[in-house]
Design a protein around this nucleic acid. Structure first.
Lengths: 147, 147
DNA sequence: TCACAATCCATGCAAATGCATCTAATATCG
DNA sequence: CGATATTAGATGCATTTGCATGGATTGTGA
């Protein structure tokens, strides 16, 4: 707990507010485009994507949690909604009676793909077209410090 | 509306997820430290800070909205809460009967300062100490493309 | 000037979130 | 083994958000 008491530099503070604001703006734009296309929120995509690329299309809730950074209680209820829409289903996890599998359904895979057609265009229109490849790489390399 | 149909590159997509995740992690850490110190959420800070540095310590709601990127209806109710705590007060805006002033109080200024002592430490501990000055500058320069 | 549109902010209601806690099952340790 | 702690996930409740719309005022164009 021995913290460094040094105050952040101007540059550090600007970096922080840039991260906050860029995310704000970009997420706002992208979510708006998804919504305009009649698609559900981005968090649905994140979960469906993690499931779709997992072995057998299934993960434990805590695994989804780690991969998406969703809070446990939020994920639990997001899965409720996804299940209600028939996009995933919960199955028993035999090796541990406390655990569950969350399995993506065919409808879930299809929705994810349809979301991706919109999402991809959005990412390109809001982000890709404003960065060179090397700039994009710089961003992910620099921000990797925080992951 | 003629959109570029090109799909985003790998690098672009990674840049986007880096932004989302870095913000997630950093905000989580910083909000947790504020809360641990008994402080209100970061959004309160943002509003108080914009007011504190504005002329006469006051702004119109729509000005706060622009500066903080808060949604209009969220800001309206955030101001309710701030007002309830005596941190700001609303005053009439004589030139336009639709408008309002939001004025920071002395208690508001003091709270902002106390929050800053915690917030600054958090920014340094989570961000500053992981970046050189030039890296921090690179981040803000690159992300400025989106602002 | 008068009808109509636009702007500023507030608010009712439904949905999502945060927090604390609960249940059920498993792990640990005497 | 038995008591206790820990883990996985769900949930009740209060707060916050999102969406649509409302009320009040100002701008605009015939």
């Amino acid at each position: 707990m021995s913290e460094n008491m040094t105050k952040p530099s101007e540059a550090t503070t600007r970096a922080w507010t840039s991260i906050m604001r860029a995310r704000e703006r970009l997420l706002g734009a992208i979510e708006a485009e998804l919504k305009a296309a009649g698609m559900p929120p981005l968090a649905w995509y994140d979960v469906l994507w993690e499931l779709a690329r997992a072995d057998d299309g299934r993960l434990r809730p805590y695994e989804i949690e780690e991969r998406t950074l969703l809070a446990q209680y939020n994920l639990s209820r997001l899965i409720d909604r996804l299940e209600g829409e028939g996009l995933v289903r919960r199955e028993v996890f035999a090796e541990d009676g406390r655990g569950r599998w969350v399995v993506i359904t065919e409808a879930g895979r299809q929705l994810r793909e349809r979301m991706w057609t919109v999402y991809a265009k959005s990412i390109e229109a809001n982000i890709g077209c404003r960065l060179t490849e090397s700039e994009a790489n710089s961003i992910s390399a620099l921000l990797a410090r925080f992951l």
